[in-house]
Amino acid sequence: MRFDDAASRREWFERRLAPLMDRLYGTALRLTRHPADAEDVVAEAVIKAWSQLGRLHDPERFEGWLFHILTNTFISEWRRRRSRPHAGNADTLEPVELDSASFTLFQQLHQPFLLWWGSLEDQFFNGLLQEDLEQALDALPDAYRVTIVLVEVQGYTYEEVASLLGIPVGTVRSRLSRARSRLQKMLWVQAREAGVVLGGKEGGAQE
C-alpha cells in the first residue's frame, strides 16, 4: 500500500483495524487462554502489520492478512515458550494420542421422540453458556485447542492449518477429531453437572 503522507496511512490503517479488534482479541484469547498474553499477541501483530503495510498489495485482503500475522505471531511465541527447558507442560508438544475420537454429544442427547418440553438438543443449547464453552475449550490440550480454533473459529482449511503448524494434514485431521470428541465429552459432563440436561441416555432419566 502507498500513501500520500503519514497521516493518511495512519487513518487508513486505524479505520480498517477498529472493526476487527474484538475478533482479533477474542481469537488471541482462545489461542493463548490468558487475557494478558492475548493482549500481547494482538499488540505485536498490529505493530507487525503496521510496519509491513507496504507489503500488502491488495487492500481487500487486509483482514485475512492481519489474522494471518496474528496467527503466526501466536504460533512463534508458542513454539518459543515450549522450547524453554523448564516449560513444564509436556502436553503442549504432542498430546498423548490415547483418547479415542469416538464420543459424540449428539448420541447422548438425541432421542428419537420429542419430549413435551422440546428436544434434549434444544435443552442443551439453551443451557450452554458462552463461559462453559470457553472453559471447555481452554481445558483442551494445547495442540488440540489450537487446531480446533484455527479450523472452527478462524475458518482455515486443513491444508492451511498444516502449513501454519508445520504438521501433516493427516495429523490436523486426527487432532481435530480428537479435539471435538474431547470437547463434546466435556460439554456433556458440564451439562449434566449443571443439571441443564435432565435425562439423556446415560441413565439420567431413571435417576
Binding site: 475478533r23 482462545r30 493482549e39 494482538v42 499488540a43 498490529v46 505493530i47 475449550l137 478462524q154
Partner: peptide, 27 residues
C-alpha cells in the same frame, strides 16, 4: 452446525480499553 457456530462465536471478545490505548501509543 449449531455447536460449531457456538464455538466460532467464542472468537469474539470485547477488546479491553487498555489494549486500544496501548496500540494507539505504539502507533
Amino acid at each position: 452446525r449449531r455447536l460449531r457456530a457456538r464455538v466460532a462465536a467464542t472468537g469474539t471478545a470485547k477488546a479491553p480499553p487498555r489494549l486500544h490505548r496501548r496500540i494507539s501509543a505504539l502507533l
